[in-house]
Amino acid sequence: MNRIINNPDEVVEDALRGYLRAHQDLLASTDNPRVIRERSAPRQGKVGIVTGGGSGPEPAFLGYIGENMIDAVAIGEIFSSPTAKSFHDAFVAADGGCGVACLYGNYAGDNMNVKMAIRQAAAHGLTVKTVVANDDVPSAPKDERAKRRGVAGEILMWKVGGAKAAEGADLDAVIATAQKAIDNTRSIGIGLTPCTIPAVGKPNFSIADGMMEVGIGHHGEPGIEVGPIRPARELADLMLDAILPDLPFGEGDNVAVLVSGLGATPVMELYILYDHIAEVLASHNITVRHPFVGNYFTSLEMMGVTLTVMKLDEELDRLVGMPAHSIGLTKVAR
């Protein structure tokens, strides 16, 4: 395990200190060391946007704290849900008197901790409503969509929810729009190598050299197919073939596209993949209004890639396009 760490049991604490030192213009600490808020949160009169999850996907989740984005995040151990207390404390840190939208991904631990945190918040009169992201197509069949995991589509959900709240919408409108965002979003991942949680010290699963696993989850959840790695063009076709019919996306659609590396894949390769993705989408007369290519939602040092496509109506197009600033995603007015 060749890693740049100190104590493997304290990688989350050590990294958080670094984030806070590096990004004082965006981030601020709270009384709970596992909750980080936007520097000027809570903003009075604005719906608070909260998310949270296990550490490991980078720079999620705190990387999306920022202007017109997320107000506070709860941070868990690597690949392990934050505590109910941390979710609760993040709600408090984000609450500007208009309630809190908790926009998070569909994982058993997160579901439980958020549920308990909402009860705690309700006990002192803080209203929290949720949207649970389930954009990962291979993790369950379409008729069991409620079982699907939330993956990189969460970023577009946060972007939309954060922008809607910044426009001054009330809690119900923020929730409805974030729900619309994730309902129109589909993702798929391909893993080429496993990853190692530092405290565990060995890889969480195995893939033979030259092989890939289609549909793999960010925590090594097994995918739907293992086979030899194919050229980037074929990978792009395979990924689009899985997600385009699922929504479905079709002729004349406007979309946002997010291609994320899983941590150890060179950014160059993400662009090699994106080239063909854009070509295929154009051949279907689908217009990419907002492309994002980079390491948006990784899985420690796994090699591989995820593709996320969101179908845009006028509102989603406006909200994804709204200027925003965070570590992971910055959008400037054009």
């Binding site: 296990g54 868990g76 151990e77 849900s81 934050p82 109910a84 631990g109 901790n113 308990m116």
Partner: peptide, 14 residues
Amino acid sequence: LSGIGGSMGPLYGS
């Protein structure tokens, strides 16, 4: 509940 998170924190905690 306040210390370990994951699934086991809320389950064993409650």
